[in-house]
Design a protein around this nucleic acid. Sequence first.
DNA 1: AAAATACAAATTGAATACAATTGGTATATT
DNA 2: AATATACCAATTGTATTCAATTTGTATTTT
Lengths: 234, 234
Amino acid sequence: MAAKDRKTALIDHLKHAILTLELEPGSDLDEVALGEAFELSRTPVREVFRQLDGLGFVELRDNRGARVAALSHTTLRDFFLAAPMIYAAILRLAARNARPAQIEALKAAQAQFREALRTGVAAERALANNRFHEITGEMAGNIYLLPSFQRLLIDHARIGMSFYRPRTSQMVQNLDTARHHHDLIIAAIEVGDEDRAAELAEDHWALSRDQIELFVMPAALDAPLGEITRKTSA
Amino acid sequence: MAAKDRKTALIDHLKHAILTLELEPGSDLDEVALGEAFELSRTPVREVFRQLDGLGFVELRDNRGARVAALSHTTLRDFFLAAPMIYAAILRLAARNARPAQIEALKAAQAQFREALRTGVAAERALANNRFHEITGEMAGNIYLLPSFQRLLIDHARIGMSFYRPRTSQMVQNLDTARHHHDLIIAAIEVGDEDRAAELAEDHWALSRDQIELFVMPAALDAPLGEITRKTSA
DNA sequence: AAAATACAAATTGAATACAATTGGTATATT
DNA sequence: AATATACCAATTGTATTCAATTTGTATTTT
């Protein structure tokens, strides 16, 4: 029984470390080192790799080591193309199917998210936000949508970690808007307002997109040397 | 190198057998027996199970054997809820991004599908149809949509195998309509007509839904004993 | 000196051996 | 007789050993 626990501990560790960018996208995973660290032989470690590959955390290549799933420029484009649609569908179904116990869990997750905002630790915030959305996925309960949704959540967390530095007041303010969105989402789900829930999904992802724009395009200086063209993403 | 080939052979066999219902949903997979059959030790067989679990072909439960992914009543509901949306998105992106080589591959797949319709072997038809749609997924090339899409394709094939007997002329006719849809889809993709491609996706899935209704509700007898209400699904 | 080849070390993959868990059957108990 | 318990066989999970592939380095070749 002890080995099983060490195995789940490894899974949890890897998920956590990958979501928080503690393990960088594309970085190599050493099956021997991880085996020693978690007191497991290579066999179960490799099984964990294959499992996390199936979930989108990790990438497996033949005769080469496992790597943390990449997060490239093109994936960012794919992300904002797919996210609004999938997320709107998930929240619509969440509003349709949410059970009372799940709504309580969602409220608890939101409390955690608030707390993370207060303490200001980026990793905590990303994980709490991730947990919030995970619950909406459970509420929707559609086995065909979940695989894509969960992959979106993985990269949502990582993108959130990447493209945020609390330098500008706008970025800090966006976080508060996100928190407010969550509250509105909870309310829409609680009353079963599907259309409202789907609408909020759009808003919520637009916010994420804006956040990235802020990061990619820092506040312009006073005197423009050339012409500054405003990029419109995706 | 030989072992690697036997491993891929096992993967291909399982995928094939699962898609064609040769292996029934929910049936147990014996890792020892499969290992002997494909001249592999249990270790690689188990890795294959985990991989196919990640892809949605198989379900893994702790300390119990691997099973072919279930296909329950509730999954059927989930299916027709998610399929139109995902498929419309895939075809829209396919029309947007398809490359010439891919279009050729799609035409070849359609030729295979025609041939399968001619010979009338259900498994051949399901596999050819599956391949056709797989290519549209490759064309779309969005890593976030693919996981859900591929799971839909797995069950699309299996549902197609389940809910079809060429008894009624309507069912045979539906197949021809599906073939025609494919031709229209190819045309829309070739000219890059996104809206048309998305529209065709809706039609195509409506056809699948009607096909199931035909199966669940066989041709009514002459004299209605009670009232026959037409079901509208989802 | 640059490129190609050969070799060695390190890493990954598969097979075997060992341990733990599950499920069924027979025996015991009430 | 019905239920509970103990044991055994079968199956699953992990560790270890062995094989194959990759990768870095040194040597050779042009």
